[in-house]
């Protein structure tokens, strides 16, 4: 698969999902279990992505500068620091640790 194929296919699917909500009758998705799973799906995927992005190195687990960086990010989010500042701070922490070790 070329990068363009991936980008276009994923984009078309995501747009189709948005359009679907305006086309289908609302009752089909009103069931609380369906709504609950959809909400939890977002949480599960984001959490899994964080884990893989923080610990994964191809097909292995590697603990390195990313771990303290993400911990710092968590602390800053808890203090209600804005998104952009936290992301930059996390990058800075990781870069600093790599520069010093």
């Amino acid at each position: 698969m070329s990068a363009w194929n991936i980008v276009i296919l994923a984009s078309v699917i995501c747009v189709a999902l948005k359009v679907a909500g305006y086309l289908i009758p609302p009752r089909a998705f009103e069931h609380p279990t369906v709504a609950r799973i959809a909400n939890l799906l977002t949480v599960a995927l984001l959490a899994a992505l964080i884990a893989v992005q923080t610990l994964g190195a191809g097909q292995s687990i590697q603990v390195d500068a990313r771990v303290p960086a993400v911990l710092v990010a968590a602390g800053l989010y808890a203090l209600r620091v804005p998104f952009v500042v936290v992301v930059i701070a996390a990058a800075a922490v990781a870069a600093l640790i790599r520069a010093l070790t």
């Binding site: 990010a73 992301v87 990058a91 790599r98």
Partner: peptide, 20 residues
């Protein structure tokens, strides 16, 4: 990795997850 942007990606996901 030299700039710590891989850690920034993880922090970005965390920011999307946090309010949930």
């Amino acid at each position: 990795s030299a700039y710590g942007l891989d850690a920034a990606a993880a922090a970005a996901f965390l920011g999307l997850l946090w309010p949930r």
